[in-house]
Design a protein around this nucleic acid. Sequence first.
RNA 1: GUCCCCAUCGUCUAGUGGUUAGGACUCUGCCCUUUCAAGGCAGCAACACGGGUUCGAAUCCCGUUGGGGAUACCA
Length: 487
Amino acid sequence: MTTETHGPVRVRFAPSPTGFLHVGGARTAIYNDLLRQKLGGAFILRIEDTDKERSDEAMTRQIQSALAWIGTVWDEGPFLQSERLPRHHERAEELLAAGKAYRCFCTPEELDAQRAEAQKKGTAFRYPRTCLRLSQEEVEARLAEGRTFAVRFRMPDDNIRFKDMVRGDMDFPPDALDDFILLRSDGNPTYHMSVVVDDIDMRITHVIRGEDHLSNTPKHIPLFQALGGEVPTFGHLPLILGPDKKRLSKRYGATSVEEFRNEGILPQALYNFLALLGWSPGDDREIMTREEMIQLFSVDRLNASPAVFDREKLLWMSSQYMARHSTAELMPHLQTFLEQAGLADADPDRLAATLELHRTRARTLKEMVEQVLPYFRESLEYDAAACAKFLKDPALPGLLETLRDRYAALPEFTKEALEAGLRALSEERGVKAGVLIHPVRMALSGAAGGPPLFDLVEVMGREASRRHLDRFVAYLRAGNAATGSPG
RNA sequence: GUCCCCAUCGUCUAGUGGUUAGGACUCUGCCCUUUCAAGGCAGCAACACGGGUUCGAAUCCCGUUGGGGAUACCA
């Protein structure tokens, strides 16, 4: 918005390990990454795993791997928030001793009833500070009875104001906030307590997080102050929406970084795409390397309005990235797809050559491998609809046999020689080159479209080409017989 | 319900009082071409609505509508 930001900064990304890394989270991590790289400082990765029932160690590893895969770089961590619980507890005790927090003996049942009441009256529920008014003696008496208590933060009575990096001036009146809980009655710190203590201890200067935290910020700011910490600069990112303008959900396909990885999206493409979902460099540039984005990045250009996730555009961007990288560069990313397709042991040169032919014809790595698979098959399925026109020409099988024989006899099996051979034959027989070209493509690939024919034949090789032409001629003849075309 | 946020082509966006409202994805057409892609060119398509402020509003203010978020002893 209008926030001047200059480095160095200490930023953090703090996911809770309750599932795969969501693209929304990935985008948050990307903006933190860009800001850190732009201004210097440190990016801290912190895993907020204090909700043990929902947290999973495997997910923690998964999130790290997803972050590393898209290309974000963190300098410190991962720190596990669960390991810092004693520290959070200790700081809460300090607040209690200093009178900045107080014990609350109200039971959840009582509070629920009060909440329901407020709901019925159509007003916002705010903790009525029942226990703040307890005298020292009353507190002692309850403690003596052995009653359990939660610890609540004593919120200040003034408006909470701050300048959000993406939304500008924010102002929350005191009646919108209440004395939230710091320590649960089982003694465990709540999320609010943990984040603020961690952000202070980790000397965080800038917090970029999702909009779902916007209403937490006016709680966190006074807590930072009460704990004697520097209040970081906040920026709240709008959520990523699905085509239905609701929060992006599984309903419309992949939502996690992991899934896009499995679909064969190049990590650089996903990084680029996500970075552009809520930020733009200000000019018309779209395809940018991380380095370029770091150069161009500015929190001032972060958008405040939510963006719809457009799968088509991601696919387009993915294809752009494949077109701009050599097959050799793509190879490491292709590995798992090659294994899945059973091509892990294929001849490397031949594999590279076929992949090269399809690099600009596929939108994902997975598609690229699928397109290349027929080159390694003994026999092919022919696209029957596209074959229909070849079946009608009784001269074609003979022509293809002649071509097959000439190709087999070629001294040099190069695309130049192959093209010369085919064109010579077409001229001799007085047919257009296309009459031969299309059936040959079908014979070798099973498809009506694809790479330039002579590249295709060369890569296919002498032996395989011969075999495929044989099979296709047989297929055509069988087809003619089947349709019972009269002599 | 209450509080908060958001609003330019279908989608991502540029635009910060005066523009023929620009670019990208998608779609359509043409060129290139042995096909499919890629690439090039062209086209379709937007300031949610209503009031102000102003000589002049996509841009500033107020409403309405629509969408989203938050309303926990979850994170």
